[in-house]
Simulated assay, not measured.
Amino acid sequence: MWSDFTEYIIKHYSQSSGIAEVAVGHFLQVGCDLKKRLEVDIIMTDIKPYHDSVILDDIRQPDLKIYKDAELIYSIRPPEELHPYLEQLSDKLGADLIIKPLSTDSIHTRGKMNLINYKKAVFYKKSK
């Protein structure tokens, strides 16, 4: 399933100037795979980074300089209370937003997000 999610991002954003994963937590698989497979700037952020490749940032008060080139903001299983902040960040940047929630979570954003079923990957996307 993660390979399908990564494949979708590669297929649609390989020509972008930047991609940012927000609220990475301890799951680096997708971000690291994208870094290996794309010649695009991949940024990973978290409020409590546990790995050297993850940048410290609080999505509730984001440092916009970190994300300045991002054409895609995505987050894997973010807490529902962060959904509006992810949407605000993508709106400020004019970037697409992908949220891959837990299967039991719903999406809490102002704008409409489309449900995407790509092979075995299921997620929500809002285009700029």
Rank of each mutant, 00 (worst) to 15 (best):
M1V: 12
S3C: 00
S3L: 05
S3M: 05
D4T: 00
T6P: 00
E7I: 00
E7W: 00
H12V: 02
H12Y: 13
Y13S: 07
S14I: 05
S14P: 04
S14F: 13
Q15F: 12
Q15K: 15
S16H: 05
S16G: 04
S17K: 11
G18H: 03
I19G: 04
I19E: 06
A20F: 01
A20H: 01
E21R: 03
E21A: 05
A23M: 09
V24A: 12
G25H: 08
G25P: 07
H26E: 11
H26F: 02
H26G: 06
L28N: 04
L28V: 08
Q29I: 13
Q29W: 11
V30G: 06
G31K: 03
D33P: 00
L34R: 04
K36V: 01
K36G: 01
L38K: 04
L38A: 06
E39Y: 05
E39Q: 08
E39G: 11
D41A: 09
I43T: 15
I43A: 08
T45N: 08
K48H: 15
K48G: 04
P49F: 00
P49M: 00
P49C: 02
Y50K: 14
Y50W: 10
H51W: 12
H51M: 02
H51S: 13
H51P: 04
D52S: 14
D52L: 10
V54H: 03
I55V: 15
I55R: 12
L56W: 02
L56A: 09
D58I: 02
I59F: 07
R60K: 15
P62I: 07
P62D: 07
L64R: 09
K65G: 06
I66M: 08
I66P: 03
I66D: 09
I66N: 11
I66T: 09
Y67H: 10
D69N: 15
D69A: 13
A70R: 01
E71Q: 15
L72K: 02
L72A: 02
I76S: 04
R77T: 15
R77E: 15
P78Y: 09
P78H: 08
E80Y: 09
E81A: 10
H83I: 08
P84K: 01
Y85C: 10
E87T: 09
Q88A: 13
Q88N: 14
L89A: 06
L89M: 04
L89E: 02
L89I: 07
S90T: 03
D91G: 01
K92R: 14
A95P: 03
A95I: 00
D96F: 00
D96G: 11
L97K: 00
I98T: 06
K100M: 13
P101F: 11
L102I: 09
L102P: 03
L102D: 13
T104A: 12
D105N: 13
H108Y: 14
H108A: 14
H108D: 13
H108G: 02
H108S: 14
T109F: 10
T109A: 10
T109Y: 10
R110P: 03
R110A: 12
R110M: 13
G111A: 11
K112C: 10
K112T: 14
K112W: 11
K112Q: 14
M113P: 08
L115T: 09
I116S: 11
Y118F: 15
K119L: 08
K119W: 00
K120T: 12
A121P: 06
A121Y: 08
A121F: 05
V122P: 00
K125V: 10
K126V: 00
K128W: 00
